[in-house]
């Protein structure tokens, strides 16, 4: 029983990282209907930014987090301005946006490979690590920090979208970009803001990721991004609580599959979930069923 509970905790800690990444996917998709496949690579950018600040510049952790968040937000906005904006303005077909996103992803991976070489960079002990006894279990402090941070961020994000002016603008743009424009909302600024927030979140995800898995490579974002994408679809892409639930479920599915001794089919399980969701409930668990506009 203790072992089973430990496996659940393992799953939740992994899942909360998926959830943070999935939040970024969902936000951007909600506003622009663009699946930003470069989002996973923003995590990688955030991880390297943390590495540069923490190790190379020797700053304290809070400064490293702040710098990583700012840097990723800027990178996110630059990517949006350079790669996506024209396509979005011209109402380019979605497939063009998708291909551009994959291109940006490759660009980032190869760029960082040139800058930092391809060998993994180690950053041990980013977050304070000690076991915390909870009943019969021993939970690592890193695990608790990861889970707690992602819950807090989800709540903050929900407040941002539901309670603030810019949040209102985001919802309006998401509902009907044309009508929002007529109401005096700058869709351009709103989209840029969404990218900045999404990418900043990715940086937080990156710090937690590095805390849990202290190894950074230029390719670390690709599989993580794909799994987070599955999480976003499972939760209902566009929905913030959905991304959270999807992330946790995917983390649990992975962890329990491995615990059952079926490690060889972990990825098959995760992507099998994607196929099942698309077949049975394409809007995901919490997704809204919106009629396709023609």
């Amino acid at each position: 029983m203790v072992e089973f509970l430990t496996q659940i905790i393992n799953g939740l800690s992994q899942g909360s990282i998926f959830a943070l990444v999935a939040l970024g996917y969902s936000m951007v998709y909600g506003i622009t209907q663009l699946i930003n496949f470069a989002h996973g690579d923003i995590i990688m950018v955030g991880a390297y930014a943390t590495y540069v600040m923490l190790i190379l510049a020797g700053t304290p952790l809070w400064a490293a987090i702040l710098a990583a968040v700012l840097f990723c937000a800027i990178v996110g906005v630059v990517i949006e301005q350079v790669a996506y904006q024209r396509l979005l303005n011209k109402n380019a077909p979605r497939i063009s946006l998708l291909i551009t996103a994959i291109g940006v992803s490759m660009l980032l991976q190869n760029l960082f490979q040139i800058i930092f070489k391809s060998d993994a960079k180690s950053v041990s002990n980013v977050l304070p690590s000690f076991p915390i006894p909870v009943g019969p279990l021993e939970i690592s402090s890193v695990t608790l920090i990861t889970i707690a941070t992602s819950v807090v961020i989800m709540v903050l994000l929900q407040l941002l979208v539901k309670k603030t002016r810019i949040g209102k603008a985001m919802r309006a743009t998401s509902e009907d970009a044309g009508a929002a424009k007529l109401m005096g909302i700058s869709s351009r600024n709103t989209i840029a803001f969404t990218f900045a927030v999404g990418s900043g979140l990715a940086a937080v995800g990156a710090v937690l990721y590095v805390g849990a898995y202290p190894s950074i490579t230029p390719y670390m974002g690709s599989l993580l991004g794909l799994k987070a994408f599955v999480a976003a679809v499972l939760g209902g892409i566009g929905s913030i609580p959905g991304a959270m639930i999807g992330g946790l479920l995917i983390g649990l599915a992975e962890s329990l599959t491995k615990a059952a001794g079926w490690s060889q089919i972990t990825d098959a399980v995760v992507f099998g979930i994607l196929i099942l969701v698309l077949l049975l409930k394409p809007t995901g668990l919490l997704g809204r069923n919106v009629k396709e506009k023609v």
Binding site: E3, Y213, E254, S263
Partner: peptide, 20 residues
């Protein structure tokens, strides 16, 4: 006899089994 897949970064599930 535990296994993992290429690109995995989380091994805690398998290690928990091994610890048992």
């Amino acid at each position: 006899e535990e296994k993992y897949q290429d690109g995995d970064v989380d091994f805690k599930s398998q290690l928990t089994n091994i610890k048992g």
